[in-house]
């Protein structure tokens, strides 16, 4: 944002922040405050029954529980792995789509289909996994190994790739579209092979965007509940534990602690994506 003086201010009218006030109030009341209460709950200083006094027990218990540790690790593997794999798939696809688009070949249908999963709740994606690779899944008819795959770690990984595709492809598509094709052309005339052009020009220029997009997608994937809820009889991920603490006995404090843990992971992924992307962008010259 620039330091330009605001143009188009209602001169002599009410100050600009007044326009923002209602939205800020809603955000503070229904996001800021509840999140603060949730954090307080996790330390035992929130509302009943999580008002037992300041304590770190809920976090210590969480880390002591092997179920929670397992879910945590599985969550990181599934969210991180699916996003990494999606990036590997998405980069060639967005480059291809950008080229087609420049050449005037229509990409509307491909764009529409690749965006589709963003409008589908996670539960439907989980259900897809059941239809295809559940115990009576369609793919199981072709090969027995597919039966029940939905409830395993690799199956969950594939379901999360489905979840991540539109969230990675969409923003990355914009980045690929802004890449100057003249750069790759120039590199080629200078004698670089296609692989060399990809490794030294296209990929480095796309990498900062890819890292940032990856961080955001991983944050979203970590917090995703629907997919794993549908497939809950298989691998356990952390969001299931958060809900479990509430639905079996309303242990608000320990549920809040797990929720805070999950939020921290997401924020970590988000911030790491931004920071790493900036570092890569700056570190190119070395």
């Amino acid at each position: 944002m620039s330091g330009r003086p605001p143009v188009g201010v209602l001169r002599g009218g009410p100050p600009g922040w007044l326009a923002a006030a209602p939205a800020l109030l809603v955000a503070a009341l229904f996001c800021g405050y509840p999140v603060a209460v949730m954090v307080a709950n996790s330390f035992g200083v929130g509302q009943a029954p999580a008002d037992t006094g300041p304590t770190l027990d809920h976090y210590l218990n969480a880390f002591a529980s092997s179920a929670v540790r397992g879910a945590l690790i599985a969550s990181v593997i599934v969210a991180g792995g699916s996003v990494l794999l999606t990036l590997g798939i998405a980069i060639p696809v967005v480059l291809r789509l950008a080229r087609d688009n420049r050449a005037g070949r229509g990409t509307v249908l491909a764009d529409a289909l690749l965006t589709l999963p963003i409008a589908l709740p996670g539960i439907i994606i989980g259900f897809f996994a059941i239809v295809l690779t559940g115990r009576t899944g369609l793919l199981g008819l072709a090969w027995d190994g597919f039966s029940g795959l939905a409830y395993t770690l690799p199956g969950l990984l594939v379901a999360y790739i489905y979840f991540a595709i539109p969230r990675v492809l969409g923003p990355l598509r914009g980045a690929a579209e802004t890449l100057d094709p003249g750069l790759a052309d120039s590199a080629r005339t200078l004698g670089a092979s296609r692989i060399r052009v990809f490794c030294t020009i296209t990929l480095p220029l796309l990498l900062p965007a890819a890292i940032e997009v990856g961080g955001t997608a991983m944050a979203v994937a970590l917090g995703g509940y629907g997919t794993v809820a549908t497939l809950s009889e298989g691998v356990r991920l952390l969001p299931l534990n958060v809900v479990n603490e509430l639905t079996t006995g309303y242990r608000l404090a320990s549920s809040s602690a797990l929720a805070v843990l999950l939020a921290c992971l997401s924020v970590l992924a988000l911030v790491a994506g931004r920071v790493l992307s900036r570092t890569v962008r700056k570190g190119f010259l070395s």
Partner: peptide, 22 residues
């Protein structure tokens, strides 16, 4: 012949200077 093997020096209109290299 592929562009990479023609031994041609191209200066494109927008110069296409690689932004991530010195």
């Amino acid at each position: 012949l592929a562009a990479a093997r023609r031994n041609i020096g191209l200066v494109p209109q927008n110069y296409a200077v690689f932004p991530h290299m010195s």
